[in-house]
């Protein structure tokens, strides 16, 4: 599903270079539920952004669903993002002046779908997350957990193969967090690959694979040590 080989991301500002990712290798198979952990500044958000085609990388290779993304223009990347990837953010990122229906509608608009088809998908997505009855409500009228569920519906509406979640439960209390996680597990159960960045070790434990990133490099932990890590002295042992 997702393959990165020797990926590097270097931020250059005036005189300073920051290596967010260095020699990053990872292979994620279809249907996996991967938790990405690591201390702050380790590069896990950068990894997610690159995986989600939100950022470009400096060197290396990245194949998404068999397609090499290097050299793709803005239009192609956007289309890929639109069709294959779904995003869930820590702070929900719903558009406040649109109601739930129109929020979920946003990614579908960029597909050029007919009105009928969009309606079907939106209703299905909202039903999946249990919020059909609040379709005409606005994000401000919902609790945090409900807003995140809408965000998930939005991410799912386009039928993505890969779901990227950045601290999806970070702004939720434990009860809401649990229900969101259950939802994610349900989605994964139906075949969607999920990459979830999280601080919370409990959450990480619920995934079926953990990837730990320190200083921009991968160290796979636990469950299925599928790939080797590059030799890194101070990292934890597999």
């Amino acid at each position: 599903m997702l393959v990165m080989k020797k990926l590097s991301k270097v931020y250059r500002t005036e005189n300073i270079e920051t290596h967010a990712l260095r020699g990053f290798d990872i292979l994620v198979r279809e249907g996996e539920f991967v938790a990405v952990t690591g201390p702050s500044g380790s590069g896990k958000t950068t990894f997610l952004n690159i995986a989600g085609l939100l950022e470009e990388f400096t060197s290396g290779e990245y194949h998404l669903d068999g397609q090499d993304v290097r050299g793709l223009g803005d239009v192609a990347r956007s289309r890929l993002r639109n069709e294959k990837i779904g995003f869930i953010f820590q702070s929900f990122n719903l558009i406040p002046d649109l109601n739930l229906y129109h929020n979920v509608d946003v990614p579908l608009r960029y597909r050029g779908m007919s009105r009928g088809e969009r309606r079907e998908r939106i209703e299905a997505a909202l039903a999946q997350v249990g919020l059909s009855s609040r379709m005409k409500h606005y994000p401000a009228e919902l609790s945090g957990g409900q807003q995140q569920r809408v965000a998930i519906a939005r991410a799912l509406a386009g039928g993505p193969r890969l779901l990227l979640a950045d601290e999806p439960t970070g702004n939720l209390d434990s009860q809401m967090a649990r229900s969101v996680l259950e939802l994610l597990e349900e989605i994964n159960g139906r075949g969607t690959t999920i990459l979830m960045v999280t601080h919370d070790p409990e959450l990480a434990a619920r995934a079926n694979r953990n990837v730990h990133i320190i200083d921009g490099q991968v160290s796979d932990l636990v469950h299925e040590p599928v790939l080797r890590a590059t030799a890194a002295p101070a990292t934890a042992t597999p």
């Binding site: 989600g52 939100l54 803005d74 239009v75 990347r77 956007s78 289309r79 993002r81 639109n82 069709e83 990837i85 995003f87 990122n93 719903l94 558009i95 946003v106 990614p107 960029y110 597909r111 939005r154 386009g158």
Partner: peptide, 16 residues
């Protein structure tokens, strides 16, 4: 800018 970021993330190309 926030909304623009979201739309881009959701797949809107720059021209959109």
């Amino acid at each position: 800018s926030g909304e623009i970021g979201v739309r881009r993330a959701l797949g809107a190309p720059r021209r959109a």
